Amino acid sequence: NQASVVANQLIPINTALTLVMMRSEVVTPVGIPAEDIPRLVSMQVSRAVPLGTTLMPDMVKGYA
């Protein structure tokens, strides 16, 4: 089972991601792979992401 990136806190719209905002977790459906966490740092979210939400490619500007 592949771990995905999950929000560790509420991430407001247009916030630049930092390591403390993200954790890896095995979830369904699968989201952005956990190994991409270093690449996500400083990228902005395109919408508010609630705590515990799996990050999907369309939620991060410039990821897809």
Rank of each mutant, 00 (worst) to 15 (best):
V60Q: 01
M22K: 00
N1D: 15
P29G: 04
P29Q: 07
V5T: 09
N8C: 05
T53V: 15
T15C: 04
P38F: 15
I37N: 01
M22H: 00
M56E: 10
R23P: 01
A16E: 05
Q9T: 11
G52Y: 04
V5F: 02
I32D: 00
Y63C: 04
S46Q: 13
V49R: 03
V49I: 14
A34W: 09
M21Y: 06
A7T: 15
A48E: 14
R47S: 08
S4M: 02
L10A: 11
I37E: 03
K61E: 07
V30Y: 14
P57M: 10
I11Q: 01
S24M: 11
R39Y: 14
S4N: 01
K61Y: 06
A64Y: 04
Y63G: 03
R23G: 05
G31R: 02
V27I: 09
V41M: 08
V20E: 07
M56V: 08
A16F: 07
E25T: 07
A34H: 15
V5C: 05
E35M: 09
V6H: 02
V6I: 15
T18G: 04
A48G: 07
V30C: 11
S4H: 01
P29D: 08
P12C: 06
N8S: 15
V41S: 04
V60D: 02
P33G: 07
S42F: 13
P57N: 06
V45Y: 00
L51Y: 14
Q2R: 04
A64N: 13
Q9K: 11
P29V: 07
P57I: 06
P38V: 13
A16P: 07
A64P: 14
V5L: 03
M22L: 13
M56C: 07
N8K: 14
V49Q: 02
S4Y: 03
A48I: 07
T18F: 03
N14T: 05
P33S: 13
R23L: 04
A34N: 05
P33I: 14
E25G: 12
R23M: 04
A34M: 12
V49T: 07
P57Q: 08
E35W: 10
L55F: 12
V20K: 13
S46K: 15
S42V: 03
M22Q: 00
T15Q: 06
